[in-house]
Design a protein around this nucleic acid. Structure first.
Lengths: 117, 117
DNA sequence: ACAAGCGTATACTAGTTAGTATACACTACC
DNA sequence: GGTAGTGTATACTAACTAGTATACGCTTGT
């Protein structure tokens, strides 16, 4: 399985093919962090960054932030907030959906979205 | 709103009315932590304990651990694991359900549980 | 009088998080 | 051959987490 660092390095290098501003240094500068730190993150020398920094990185690399946060071992704090407001209810729901296949969960999402609620 | 500390103190004192073993000292001993620490937690002098310790406390006090974790500002790590495996899917679902009333979410839980899936 | 149990004040800490700051070695350009 | 840009090695750190350990003062039963 690909690690967080490997993923973002691959993604950055890929973007760089068509845009030379995607160097470690320039990306780090745009994000407001040290290039040496980004380098360490990409090589997995340090653990993935904070939620905020991971978000900036997702934005910079044009990837979904929930996905990148997940690779960083985190869950977006706004989702946590939703759960924390009704922990038992959401706890039940999520555990119920744990083993469900993607298409079943997706059906549920659509049902809620367009449904008559 | 009631804080974490106030809640567990109230709950412990309530249990103590019918069972004197619910003193700070004895509960702490059963949990394997220092009484002084439990005391500080109850008075809100320190931030709520770790997930593991919060779980022990929930067990000791006979309350739902998801609920108590929520009061501690946390989301159970097993729920986080479920989300982290399919972050985009669950992200969508949870944000969709954010504003839904309890009964609607509950209906969904039941639908999944007994549904023809 | 004193031991047992109570809550708490006080002092301390190992480990982790999330980075910064600087300097070094290499390549490419003009 | 200098300079501009690259990735990275190295050294350091402030703040936070999640507690422990000990001692103090109070009450209560014998």
């Amino acid at each position: 399985m690909q690690t967080f660092g490997q993923f973002i390095r691959a993604r950055r290098e890929s973007l760089r093919k068509t845009d030379p501003t995607y160097s470690v240094r320039q990306v780090a500068k745009r994000m407001g962090i040290q290039p040496s730190y980004l380098s360490k993150v990409e090589r997995g020398e340090v653990s993935p960054p904070s939620e905020e920094t991971t978000r900036k990185l997702a934005h910079e690399l044009g990837v979904d932030s929930d996905m990148l946060l997940a690779m960083a071992g985190k869950v977006s704090s706004d989702l946590q907030d939703v759960i924390r407001k009704r922990p038992v209810l959401f706890g039940e729901l999520i555990r119920e959906l744990k083993e469900m296949p993607d298409h079943a969960v997706l059906r549920l999402v659509r049902e809620v979205r367009d449904g008559e609620w």
